[in-house]
């Protein structure tokens, strides 16, 4: 497989969210504002790509019996970097994201990619695979948050799009809408691209 194919497969064809149903927690929780989703997505891309790279580098030195623990610790180390960085440079967003930055550690996407790809492939391929999965995840986040912010606040990235006549749909800011929108999104993707049952 070429590097481009690896990227394409992990970002779109086998996308973690709509194909493998992983990482739903944060995909639902941070998507009420586009800025938050974008920053969360970038954080996941960073942590995912680099931890896949590191796990793959160490794959022949890691005893099989403790590999889960080693993988978790590597992921945790990168997530701590993301967390400290956000706290220092964008404290407002960091406060809004709250525990969900730390929860990247238990995001199933990271563990899933580490197990399925990084523990068997070369470091550079794993880096590309991690990047791809991260980009695919960010894409889903942005689509969901686009709908939620547009209708919930009448704005995109914090900039007002609709005028004063717009009444905010408060349901879009609350939890239930996230479930509905993700379900619709998965439905559309399934019907359009896979044409078989999920």
């Amino acid at each position: 497989m070429t590097k481009k194919e690896i990227f394409k497969i992990s970002a779109f064809k086998e996308n973690s969210v709509w194909r493998q149903i992983l990482g739903i927690c944060s995909a639902l929780a941070v998507t009420n504002l586009m800025v938050n989703s974008l920053i969360m997505g970038l954080g996941v891309i960073f942590a995912l790509a680099l931890s896949c790279f590191t796990i793959s580098l160490l794959r022949s030195y890691t005893p099989r019996s403790i590999r889960m623990m080693v993988q978790t610790l590597i992921i945790a180390a990168y997530v701590i970097i993301v967390d400290i960085f956000l706290r220092a440079y964008i404290p407002v967003v960091s406060k809004q994201l709250g525990p969900y930055v730390g929860l990247i550690i238990t995001n199933c996407i990271l563990m899933g990619r580490a197990e399925a790809f990084a523990s068997q492939n070369k470091p550079l391929d794993s880096l590309i695979d991690g990047l791809g999965a991260g980009v695919g995840y960010t894409l889903v986040l942005l689509v969901i948050s686009f709908i939620r912010e547009l209708f919930g606040f009448g704005s995109l990235f914090g900039i007002k799009v609709f005028g004063d006549w717009w009444t905010n749909w408060s349901i879009m800011v609350m939890a239930p809408s996230a479930f509905f929108i993700l379900a619709m999104f998965i439905w559309v993707i399934n019907v359009k691209y896979y044409k078989n049952k999920a």
Partner: peptide, 23 residues
């Protein structure tokens, strides 16, 4: 259930309705 919604999709919608009740 519509084919594209089977499995995860319908579960998410049910969860959404449950969340709505809990609101």
């Amino acid at each position: 259930v519509p084919i594209g919604l089977q499995g995860v999709g319908i579960s998410l919608i049910i969860t959404g309705i449950m969340a709505l009740a809990f609101v």
